[in-house]
Design a protein around this nucleic acid. Sequence first.
DNA 1: AGAAAAATGTTTATTTTTGTTCGATTGAAA
DNA 2: TTTCAATCGAACAAAAATAAACATTTTTCT
Lengths: 278, 278
Amino acid sequence: MTDSSIYPTQEKLAKRGRTPAQARLAAILDRLNQGGSVSVTEIAEEFQVSDMTVRRDLAELEAQGLLERVHGGAVSLQHGPLTVIDDVEPLFEARRRLNSDAKSRIAEAALALVAGQQTLAFDLGTTVLAGARALAASDPAPGLRIFTNSLRVAQLTAAASIQTYVPGGLIQPGEMSVTGQGAVEDFSRYYFDTALIGASGLTPDGVFDYSPEEAAMKSVYIQRSSRRILMIDSSKFRRISTVRVADLSQISIMVSDAAPPPELAQALEEANVSILVA
Amino acid sequence: MTDSSIYPTQEKLAKRGRTPAQARLAAILDRLNQGGSVSVTEIAEEFQVSDMTVRRDLAELEAQGLLERVHGGAVSLQHGPLTVIDDVEPLFEARRRLNSDAKSRIAEAALALVAGQQTLAFDLGTTVLAGARALAASDPAPGLRIFTNSLRVAQLTAAASIQTYVPGGLIQPGEMSVTGQGAVEDFSRYYFDTALIGASGLTPDGVFDYSPEEAAMKSVYIQRSSRRILMIDSSKFRRISTVRVADLSQISIMVSDAAPPPELAQALEEANVSILVA
DNA sequence: AGAAAAATGTTTATTTTTGTTCGATTGAAA
DNA sequence: TTTCAATCGAACAAAAATAAACATTTTTCT
């Protein structure tokens, strides 16, 4: 092709791209940041190149961690349609039914991790509750002690004759959790071998949860535990929520039912978090 | 970061998923957040895809915890017809069945006595628990606050959206009660309008109970309440038990299902205890 | 100019997504 | 309750998109 120097409108947008190839890459990124996603065919037609070339472009940008490829194109890591911001917590019962299969798998895996531990802290949430259920169903060691601000967890473990401690304070009806400053102070007196933490969102930016009150208690668990296990099903990947609870680096082990998406896996690795897929 | 990305505008959505699959998923979520529900056929027609494809989309979104599927479509987790069931089975003990008729009569009578009170303390025991159940089933005033070291009571009242406080400490498995010095100290900070007290024995010598730990908490309730209601079924008359919890004179009102025997009636009268037979 | 390197195009096998059929299940009406 | 139509899911077929291997073109040097 002799007319290789066609510079349509994209030339203005992507001046740094001196070669056609660089112009394409820049335009792809630009479009992603604006619209959230691009399709292979769309780019191919616009730049009069083959689909294969566009795929190679996308592959390169993905390798640089600048986008995520999906079938048919690519989506932005920032406004990818799958990164969801939600600030309304679904009711407990609805959450419990979701992914209950994955949750029990996660529960079993986490349970294996805490075998032999003496003092466990149980956070809120359906996934952690599944862990408590599994623990209660197993034959726990006699000396085991549980600390939790979830009355649901407490009921399960206490009924299984496990020594169970709860903090004092006001009960939040939906979650059946004890929260508030008094509860935080109560548990700030203790140290735990392992904390089992739940969350409503997990991204490279950290661990997220709905309510500030619950987040405060999570912080206690995290700060006062030798080992911090995050139990989170894969639906929470790429979701952020009202409160940022913790850095990735504060988590020792992440247990989930599926491998995290690439950008999260990389961030977890950099934060030195072990990943366990149940 | 809290700008339009939470609730994307219509224009943004149109551009959002240039990848067909992404566009469908985004549109489904958007419609859910706006209208609360979508139907399979509706989406299939709008995007000119088969029903099966829409079902697969919904299945994927459900797996990500973003919606709940129902027959014919899906509903939002926020707006949907969410179940409000209490998923915790009442734990049946032999005691609860005993005199359950008498206990619920006592419960109703005691409930009438505390109407309009702001701050109630609930002791342990099946009779008091029946009172809590009756209270939860009634339509309690919004400002009502419950203090209890019985997790069974707490669970009932908290589920009924009554502000419920529990003390911190170790849980006793059988009673599901929080006891210990910490719990006593926790509740020693408060004052209560009325305490609802249970007991395992009542004689002219006083009020009796089984365990010293539980007795310590009863003392707190008694000492720090303006009015002290003893809820006790007639089978406990003339029985003594391990610990003497209180003098008769410390009780304001005794509620029972039958009149006490003569010597007890006389002692109660001398101690200035009102007697209410339900 | 000519060769090496890089980028792009083409073909083909593989994977992913979507469509279709059909028996099973569900929900509502009779 | 029983019936019946709508809906659902599993299995397989078709279509679209992708990745790999190789061919071709363009660029970048000397």
